[in-house]
Nucleic acid binder design. Sequence first.
DNA 1: TAGATATTTCAGCTTGCGCTTACGTAAGCG
DNA 2: CGCTTACGTAAGCGCAAGCTGAAATATCTA
Lengths: 112, 112
Amino acid sequence: MLKLAAMEAALRALAEPTRRRILTLVRDSELSAGEIASHFTVTRPAVSQHLTVLKEAGLVHERRNGTRRLYSLRPEGLAGLRSFLEGFWDERLQALRREAEAEERRKRGNHR
Amino acid sequence: MLKLAAMEAALRALAEPTRRRILTLVRDSELSAGEIASHFTVTRPAVSQHLTVLKEAGLVHERRNGTRRLYSLRPEGLAGLRSFLEGFWDERLQALRREAEAEERRKRGNHR
DNA sequence: TAGATATTTCAGCTTGCGCTTACGTAAGCG
DNA sequence: CGCTTACGTAAGCGCAAGCTGAAATATCTA
């Protein structure tokens, strides 16, 4: 899986409050760049740059309609991150199991 | 929930390859700062700084034993992030449902 | 084609982040 | 005590990131 680089990009993209807010906006409905920008105090170029980051991270989808560009959430991007965290979680449980077994063996060893 | 700031810290902490690698190390077993640093080419102070970031983000736990400091994964930190992503996911599904219903209403409206 | 509208791209500035070297601190040990 | 070991903290450097105003691009429209 070459998703590692994608993961990197997605995490970096999410590590920014404005971008997270943008995601919550386009999660509910497809919005134009201008509509998105109207929700923020930062300038439109700033929002546009954030949108580029989100797009390159695979977190949003861009659709052009006339002079406008409509952005919407791209669920697959988040799914990758989700599976990463869950994998992490699972391996953690396995580690706990390994530790418990090691502890068990240690106790047995002391008893003989 | 004041977890918003924690979320912020956790995401920022995860958006760094070295810190993610550190997490995968202490996920499996408790390790000292030196043992952790030995896995990297960066200097020990750099690793120490990363450990501070991870600790303040609630992602690792620090336990002092003599002159050494032992670090281990703190699963609750990741859990918060996980639930955040899942909440995001769920709300996305609700949004899709809302859109489908709106579409449905639109079609009905056209038919009368 | 000229002009208006929507949005990106550019150049430059400022701040933040990760890294390094040097120094400080704290616990064990002779 | 002084020495060593194991870390963290401080100061500073270089670079990436986010922001802004200005200019460029692209699409509709009269």
